[in-house]
Design a protein around this nucleic acid. Structure first.
Length: 233
DNA sequence: GGCATTTATTCCTTTACGTCA
DNA sequence: GCTGACGTAAAGGAATAAATG
């Protein structure tokens, strides 16, 4: 630890202070050539073998201790820069993810609204919903009905359903079991549940959350009743 | 082989000097 | 010339592993 008998004589504290001040007074920055050589070696190996340290010190006209300290400080500086780079990359990835999340959330909300409209129209007696039920349930088994308006209802409702399926890449599926449409979507059965899921997602994506959240906090969020990435999985 | 001690090395933090705006 | 910010050489100290008795 202590080199060349640095603190070897006199009162310990006084010796430390005087010796240290004397040493630091003589502190000189390394020359450009010395720095260049050190940098070159550091690029290939961040830690020096003792033998190589002696050789390098001799070559540069420095004390081996100085070379060791330079490498030590260089490793610290490199690590600090690396941390900055890593943080920058993580932040960029995080921002990308956040914007994708926002887009997906909007898409989902649009689909939920579309679904509500479809359900509402099907539940109204004597309107399009009833026509659809007759078309899909009755007309298919009996071949035809004496109702001349069946083709009109079909063209109005079915395109909406197919657009829902298409927009969800085949993940969303509608069935007409019972009196209303049930959704096999995100692993839930009713759109009320679907709507409930929107709320926590909203709070997570508020401006304060995005600004005050670092990546660790994001991945450690356990305050909500579900994980936000489960939202669309 | 297990142990205590010594030695060497690393990392982290702090100190103090040099430089520059 | 003074001052504050910043970069950096160097020291202090804790932790760790290898060597030694």
């Amino acid at each position: 630890m202590l080199d060349e008998g640095e603190y070897s004589s006199g009162s310990w504290m006084n010796s430390v202070i005087t010796t240290r001040k004397k040493k630091i007074k003589n502190k000189r920055r390394f020359s450009d050539e010395q720095i260049k050589s050190l940098e070159t070696i550091f690029e290939s190996e961040s830690r020096l073998e003792p033998r190589k340290k002696l050789e390098l010190a001799k070559e540069l006209g420095l004390q081996p201790r100085q070379v060791a300290i330079w490498f030590q400080n260089k490793r610290a500086r490199y690590k600090s820069k690396q941390l900055e780079r890593d943080y920058s990359i993580l932040r960029s990835n995080y921002n990308n993810l956040a914007s994708k999340f926002e887009a997906l959330k909007k898409e989902k909300q649009a689909l939920v609204i579309q679904l509500q409209k479809l359900n509402a129209s099907l539940k109204k007696p004597g309107e399009e919903g009833q026509c659809y039920e007759q078309n899909t349930g009755v007309n298919s088994s009996e071949g035809e009905s004496d109702n001349g308006g069946s083709t009109k209802c079909e063209t109005k409702v079915k395109p909406s359903l197919s657009s829902l399926e298409r927009s969800e890449h085949g993940l969303g599926r509608l069935s007409d079991e019972g009196s209303s449409i049930k959704v096999e979507y995100f692993g839930i059965e009713e759109e009320t549940n679907l709507m409930n899921m929107v709320e926590p997602a909203e709070s997570l994506t508020s401006k304060e959350d995005w600004e005050g959240l670092d990546s660790d906090e994001l991945f450690n969020q356990s305050g909500t009743s579900y994980q936000w990435w489960d939202f669309w999985v």
